[in-house]
């Protein structure tokens, strides 16, 4: 009997490409084999290995919500060899996808709570999957607030969706850009994410905070949350480390004894505090 090859990807057709920001694109991907697509399911927070045939694989989260079936999306910045090849592809081209891998944001446990999303730069994509997953089940949650910052106005990703969230009465969106990153017509905040978070006076009571961004943003955001009474188990983040297999075998993404690929990528701050400094 033929055995399963755990390294064989699904073939995916690039259905739609959206330019999000300089060097940042979103691909909407459809399963080439419809039957595989029907069987496929994932939960928000999970990731996959996307392959450009001939170049290799690259690790991103699934940026679309699990509440929407029939396709997945990924958003990436062109930064290395594989992402450069990926960025050169067109609608209709074929790539590979292995996944879903890793653990999830436990949104079922968050029912009846306020959600505070805090994201910086290119870290909005993993958060966007959770945000839409929760917005698609909007009546299960109380207040939903989103604080999103980027270096410049141009660097903000998902500009159309930010506009949509801004309009929604059931979402409280705050956008900010780093000092000097604003344009004359910028109507959002100017300042670093932790500073703006402090101004928002977040309420910790019955709230889950989901934080995702560059290490320096996370480092300065946690103390602000602490100041407003957020306990470690109320704070979630998602980690990334270099990966090859995504399955806990290839040996490179571990933080101490914990494999980001199979024990993560989602961690509470309580769990994060137990990890050694290796990410």
């Amino acid at each position: 009997m033929e055995q399963q090859n755990i390294y064989q990807p699904y073939l995916m057709e690039i259905e739609k490409i959206t330019e999000e920001a300089p060097m940042v694109k979103t691909f909407r991907l459809k399963f080439t084999n419809e039957e595989e697509g029907n069987k496929f399911s994932f939960r928000t927070g999970q990731f996959g290995e996307y392959s450009v045939f001939g170049e290799g694989e690259v690790t991103f989260c699934v940026a679309s919500p699990h509440t929407r079936k029939g396709y997945i999306e990924c958003t990436f910045r062109q930064a290395g060899r594989v992402t450069a090849e990926l960025a050169s592809l067109s609608e209709g081209d074929t790539i590979g996808f292995r996944g879903p891998y890793g653990n999830i944001f436990p949104i079922d446990d968050w029912k009846g709570k306020n959600l505070l999303f805090i994201a910086g730069g290119i870290a909005l994509p993993p958060m966007r999957s959770v945000i839409w997953s929760c917005l698609d089940l909007r009546d299960q949650f109380k207040d939903i607030s989103i604080l999103y910052g980027a270096r410049t106005v141009e660097d903000l990703v998902y500009k159309n969706e930010l506009a949509e969230w801004k309009e929604r009465p059931d979402v409280h969106l705050v956008t900010t850009v780093d000092p000097g990153g604003e344009t004359p017509d910028w109507s959002g905040e100017v300042g670093f994410v932790p500073t703006i978070l402090d101004k928002m006076i977040p309420v910790s009571e019955n709230t889950i905070a989901i934080v995702c961004g560059p290490p320096v943003m996370i480092k300065f955001t946690f103390p602000v949350l602490e100041k407003y009474g957020f306990k470690d188990e109320q704070v979630y983040t998602t980690l990334e480390n270099r990966m090859k297999c995504g399955l806990g075998k290839c040996g490179r993404c571990n933080v101490g004894k914990v494999f980001v690929c199979k024990d993560g990528p989602v961690f509470t701050r309580t769990q994060l505090k137990e990890l050694p400094d290796e990410y």
């Binding site: 009997m1 055995q3 399963q4 073939l11 057709e13 045939f53 001939g54 074929t94």
Partner: peptide, 20 residues
């Protein structure tokens, strides 16, 4: 070898590699 594929105008065709 864990994967084998060919590319043509229509896209990519994977030729299954049997691990066994």
């Amino acid at each position: 070898k864990v994967l084998e594929y060919t590319m043509n105008k229509a896209g990519v065709v994977q030729h299954p590699v049997d691990p066994a």
